[in-house]
Nucleic acid binder design. Sequence first.
DNA 1: TTGAATGCAAAACCTTTGCAAGCTC
DNA 2: GAGCTTGCAAAGGTTTTGCATTCAA
Lengths: 145, 145
Amino acid sequence: MVKPLDAPESFRTLLARRDLKFTYERRRILDLVQHLGRHFDADSLYARFKRRKERIARATIYRTLPLLLEAGVIQKSAGMGKGDFFEKTSARGHHDHMICVHCGKIIEFFNEHIEREQKRLCRKYKFRLTFHDHRLFGYCKKCQA
Amino acid sequence: MVKPLDAPESFRTLLARRDLKFTYERRRILDLVQHLGRHFDADSLYARFKRRKERIARATIYRTLPLLLEAGVIQKSAGMGKGDFFEKTSARGHHDHMICVHCGKIIEFFNEHIEREQKRLCRKYKFRLTFHDHRLFGYCKKCQA
DNA sequence: TTGAATGCAAAACCTTTGCAAGCTC
DNA sequence: GAGCTTGCAAAGGTTTTGCATTCAA
């Protein structure tokens, strides 16, 4: 298993390392992102805050996302739409995806041999893994016709 | 080894399947993309054509990229910059990446156990693999300090 | 108190679209 | 010749920035 990472912790650590402040807004964004289901983009976060009457500017979200990214709290998740998509990095319940390039179907998979090899590779290169992105593209059973 | 795929072939096949035409412009874009080194975005393709005095509109490039994507000739490659990044899908000489979220350093790796497991998974799910994207994010040796 | 962060709105960018003219098949 | 494509330029979206004000440490 990948070492479970404590998101709030790694975010605060990053801020501290850079002499940045843990503001109210950054905390709210961190919280929201953590309690969110799967994919999201900058605007959907903004919309949620707005719906709850929390006044957080789009710019603040756009400025915070890269920090969460670097802290490893979230990861980019290539959407098929426009703009960037992200998702929470979850060590537990981790799985990867097969994506049908024709119909868009997504199959989730988890393979411990692969996870194990990843860790081995990281040791070999002295690389400290925070999260990963593994996607297989091709044609699902139905679309092979 | 992943079955080497013939890019021009799969592109033409896709076009035929959809009753689309193999125009001069689409051919030029296919060629350029195939002979290009690694990463690129729509605008860098446009710039190259312009430099060579080939008059191909940005819009044409933007309209062709999704086709090349679906044909499996290219794949999305999350850049750290804005906009989409792509890279040629190469079955031969394939390798994956470790990306340092702090300094941006990229370490290339290839692991045949992982490749083998991928193929096994695809058989299991009756998924016909065209290409994949596997990236490990974290801190490189230097940035762990 | 002090440097950083936020909000707002404008600016900058990236992508998509409508339409007339030009090409494949 | 018919219908799909291209080019151009304008429209549509998304992300970034400048600056005065507010805030965390």
